[in-house]
Amino acid sequence: MIDTIYFEEDISEHPRTLSILAKFKAARTIPIKRFGELFNQRKQNFRIQKSKPSLILAQKHNGHVLQAPGGFGIGGTKNFYFSHMYNCVYDCRYCFLQGMFSSANYVVFVNFEDFDKQIERIINQHPEETVTFFSGYDCDSLALETITGFAAHILPIFKNYPGSLLEFRTKSIQVNPLTSMKAISNCVIAYSLMPEVMSVALDNKAPSIKRRIETMSKLSKQGWKIGLRFDPLIHGENWRTLYEELIEDVFKIIPQKSIHSVSFGPLRFPKAMHRDIFKLYPEDPLFSGPLQQRGPIVAYRQEIENEMADFCRQMFAKFIPDSIIFQCTPEGQSPELENNERQTYSNNG
């Protein structure tokens, strides 16, 4: 429950600020100058904050839409990402956000219209290509939808550009704006998945895998295109059996015609990010498995990565054509966050 809301003074009268504040009548509201003065402060305790995050309402001044790093994509030639929010209501132990931000508070950028303009400008710059936009790179796309209304705002824009593609990546089962409208053919609702037993241990506060699959099924019945994201792949005892069962279950329930794409990727952290996350949660078994430093990254041993990737790819191939299976290959780096060592192996979703 959010009981503290900070808001930038400049947007105190913004209609979206007012409508969000109206949803939290009992919350203490605190005016601030710029969200960075609070959010980027150095002496903060991410772990304690995560136990009771506050909300920060702010305005994004630049970098609304950024080029996605190389190796990140689901078939399109041009890939971009945007985040109307920083941070997430869930608390997945492998999430890169906990190593990237010094604060666990949620930041919501209320100037959605500036995102719209940049999205439209980019689409118009590439009239001959399928431009793919990934929503929610720095958050879960839909988890706070009841508060932000971002999906409901952005979807009609994409309706006007059927040649482009929008992906919402999520673990949320609150999908009201989607179920209350007609499916949009160029929008993919992508769910992050892993075997239930792993998810119980790692996807803290997130809906169970069973509920996510049920939600995907509901959405697919309404005509929404579904993305399946097995990213990151988690190693552990009986991983083959666990992934086999999961993959079979998912394909049994979600009809092939509804599946837009399947992607998978390894568990990887930039070295400094791994160090920071381990410092935050040194008791977590995620960091006790066969992870090792490989150059600038910390990851499972190469043979484990390869074995898991090969196994999953073969499993997917039993159900869907190769053309819609994508492996996330960690290579590039997001230009905006170079200093924070954010790489393509972002494990968010």
Binding site: V197, G236, P290
Partner: peptide, 12 residues
Amino acid sequence: VLDEYEVDWGQS
């Protein structure tokens, strides 16, 4: 020991 250990997620 740790590098070869397969985490039993059901136990963790």
